[in-house]
Design a protein around this nucleic acid. Structure first.
Lengths: 251, 251
DNA sequence: TACCGCTTGTGAACGCATGCACAAAGTTGA
DNA sequence: TCAACTTTGTGCATGCGTTCACAAGCGGTA
């Protein structure tokens, strides 16, 4: 069993190193993959605005990163820029889409049709970006057959058959924490290899399954930490003779 | 203007280094802070189960991390373990809560009462963990006054007065992307210094504001990348004489 | 064609986070 | 009291990611 990949982890590089497609893909750091997705969104906006060419400086600004980092990220997927000019927006879009595997549709199953599950099922951002919601599951028999966001809810017991039949490649867990591990196990045995987990639980999965987690409580607590740190700073700054607005009180 | 802190970024260390509380707090890597929140949740579960003492090995297992990393993370907040025994669960809980600033309540305002906003307003996990939802905002006048999750929705134009009056310390943006930057600007001018952004936009904020982003599209695309990588691997493995299940076909 | 200015792509250095391995320290049992 | 065992806390090495800085390359211009 392997714990899921958390934030900031790098891609695990294999010991052997054959120079082929696999290595090209493996060589991209996880952090860079996340940023590529951001670049892609910015670039899509550019296309709509009719922009045909963009420099690393501009794109970096719009994506909120350093331009050197941007260029390095793009270099992981090959050299598609023109020196002295910049990048062709459409070319870049198609290359990033290819690398991120967006040339293929990835069917999504949402498990747990509570508040969050409802929101996810109705979320228009998924289908429009190549992630059609293909199935919904809940343990409540009263929900079975009820359409949510246009898709009828299935009972969780049918997860294996429905998932393999509809070729679900990504499972989204939006259940209460107690149920999450069991749901995860079922998804895995249904052949789902990628899981997005909203439940505040550390899922145990086999090595070959990729888990990403979105943990609202953790996010809030990180922000809370920064609030506290800021309060500490302000307090010690005042003690040290610096006012709360950064003005030195006793120089 | 500073771009928001993305995943995996470290804490920015200040040039000067006075040995006081501030440095203690600053010295904790961002990644460690995120893990502390996870440890805290696991420990809370332990408390409910009546566990009084836990070793780094056990806690690390439950949190899905390496035990050395766990001990290092805990060492950032001080040495509260007993060699040969482990950690006192309750002591650890209270110390982590103190470091994360959870001894104080942090009022939350949710802006954008669509599907996601509804889900967030009704999400029980917030209040129970010290993050009471103190205000809801939307631009739709028809929603104004309508209670969602027990709290009446305010019009977005009242954001400044309501936020300062109710001492909101964390703003949650759950609006469509087009509105996000404007909402963010209003939150900032209302004095909110921590923002959790669900809109798929890179927010521009002053340096002193802390932004965390939760981007479902990016998460999905990262998973998509792994699906694609896996497909590539399988393909090249078959070419290289390794079957899809890892069995060597032509040794 | 030759030059000039601009932008990419990348080698190299730096810094942070991770994981190992062990000394220090505390507990248990005789 | 002492020895054996357990577990923490941490110095150190390793590896990854970020950033700098600059050579290479391309388009425009005379």
């Amino acid at each position: 069993m392997a714990a899921q990949r958390g934030e900031g982890d790098g891609v695990v590089t294999s010991p052997e190193a054959p120079a082929d497609v696999r290595e090209r893909a493996r060589a991209i750091p996880e952090a860079a993959v996340a940023r590529l997705a951001v670049y892609l969104r910015v670039l899509s906006g550019m296309v709509e605005q009719g922009v045909t060419t963009i420099s690393s400086e501009e794109l970096a600004g719009a994506a909120g990163v350093n331009s050197a980092k941007l260029r390095k990220d793009l270099s992981y997927i090959g050299s598609y820029g023109t020196r002295g000019v910049g990048y062709d927006v459409e070319v870049l879009v198609s290359h990033i889409e290819r690398i991120l595997g967006l040339t293929r549709k990835h069917s999504v199953a949402v498990v747990g049709i509570g508040n969050l599950g409802h929101a996810l099922a109705n979320y228009g951002g998924f289908p429009s970006r190549g992630f059609p919601v293909a199935a919904l599951f809940d343990i409540d028999p009263d929900l079975t057959g009820v359409p949510v966001g246009g898709i009828p809810v299935n009972h969780i017991d049918d997860i294996t058959s429905v998932c393999s039949e509809r070729e679900v490649s990504i499972g989204v867990i939006a259940t209460p924490p107690q149920a999450a591990q069991a749901v995860c196990d079922r998804l895995v045995s249904a052949g789902v290899q990628c899981i997005l987990n909203f439940a505040p639980v550390v899922l145990q999965v086999p090595d070959y399954v990729e888990v990403r987690k979105v943990d609202l409580a953790v996010e809030m607590q990180i922000l809370s930490f920064h609030v506290a740190r800021r309060a500490d700073e302000a307090a010690s700054d005042v003690v040290n003779g610096i006012g709360v607005d950064g003005v030195v009180i006793r120089p």
